[in-house]
Design a protein around this nucleic acid. Structure first.
Lengths: 225, 225
DNA sequence: ACCTGAACACCGTTCAAGT
DNA sequence: ACCTGAACACCGTTCAAGT
């Protein structure tokens, strides 16, 4: 058994660096990850990190990629609809545990690196659903857009460290803020503000997935039961 | 008429600062806006800017807010569905013209400041559609999530300066990249890669909106024609 | 091949000093 | 009340030097 006390002298590797980056992001947020904090955490110099990783963008991409891989490993053996729900929930929960993931996914969507990963997993199920080939692309895009958009918005709620207690407080605060909006400008938002208070993020997220699935059924699978 | 040549000595104001920030973001991207470039552009000192604006976050929020206000001023006099399409397209086009807007919207969604604006405009139409009150919140959330998610993804395509010529090249490049993906891991994505080549972003975006609307009709308006 | 750590260029922000 | 601009703390990145 290797001596525990020598942990800081374990060989530096890309994996260890990315792992430490994820930890820093999880514990102290996006601003908490700098080359100084990382250097300190790994008890090394800045140059050592640059030997394994090209720059900070690549480091963030690797961190995102790692968490994403875990999240997409849903793979329950259900119907296409169940698979789509499972993948969507996997992403949702990943953002819940790693709030920085939402921002990072949004930033990297703009660089095209993440899209195919999610696209592939959802697209296979769209095919299984029986959507005609000519509609695969459009249909999958719509689903992926909803999933990423909704998961991203839920990142707002995901920052409370304490799982449930603070979440209720947080929803209360947002709900109150919405109720205080200008009645002239925000009549609708004020009317639904109260609904925020009791609502379950996951449930609502899934309800949206089902809504899109219902649209797909109505438009592209006219003879489905 | 005020002398044109004294433009740089016009009184500094919050509006002029935000306006200059938007211009810098449009012309040189997110990295192009710094307090140095802004200071130079406005022929003033850093402290002068801080007199009118609390910090860079507030400046970015103000820039986002300004562009968003223009974008949401769609207001065609059509059916609720047409209004929803118009608002969605307004946002889509705004991101097309100001690629930095997608990132900024994503970042500010996580701070809750932008959501009510879009929520309100879409929500009113959901109400007009006849969706039962108990479903207003969920339904509006789903629509807004799709719209923001899809518009954000399209920011990828929106960075080419030349309107159409480069866009085709860009789509070609992405399409080729998708075709070069590992056949073992990305069979679906490869199968639809070709569809990317000819496709119209706006059309596909609207098709997605219609898909969600169809789902809303199927689930919440069972007796609609 | 891999690591060290001082140094560089650049950033957001502050603040004493001016008008 | 509003503006100036030098100064500060901090960041990502580089690189000569070590092993």
């Amino acid at each position: 058994m290797a001596p525990r006390t020598r942990r800081r002298t374990e060989a530096l590797s890309r994996e260890r660096i990315v792992e430490a980056a994820v930890e820093l992001l999880d514990t102290s947020g996006e601003t908490g990850l700098t080359f100084r904090t990382l250097t300190e955490r790994l008890a090394t110099g800045a140059g050592a990190i640059y030997w394994h990783v090209a720059n900070k963008d690549e480091l963030l991409a690797a961190a995102t990629d790692g968490v994403l891989t875990t999240a997409l490993r849903a793979g329950s053996p259900g119907s296409p609809r169940d698979e789509i729900r499972a993948v969507a929930l996997g992403l949702f929960d990943a953002i819940d545990h790693h709030p920085w993931l939402a921002t990072q996914l949004a930033l990297q969507l703009a660089r095209g690196s993440v899209t195919p990963r999610i696209f592939e997993v959802i697209g296979r199920q769209v095919r299984e659903l029986g959507v005609p080939k000519g509609q695969w692309f459009t249909t999958t895009s719509a689903l992926v857009s909803y999933i990423l958009g909704a998961a991203g918005q839920n990142a707002t709620n995901a920052r409370s460290a304490v799982p449930h207690a603070n979440r209720d407080e947080f929803l209360n605060a947002v709900s109150s803020a919405w109720e205080d909006l200008d009645p002239e400008e925000y009549p609708f938002t004020r009317a639904v503000a109260a609904e925020l208070r009791g609502h379950d993020d996951r449930e609502q997220f899934l309800a949206g997935v089902d809504l899109v699935l219902a649209g797909i059924t109505a438009v592209h699978l006219p003879r489905a039961e």
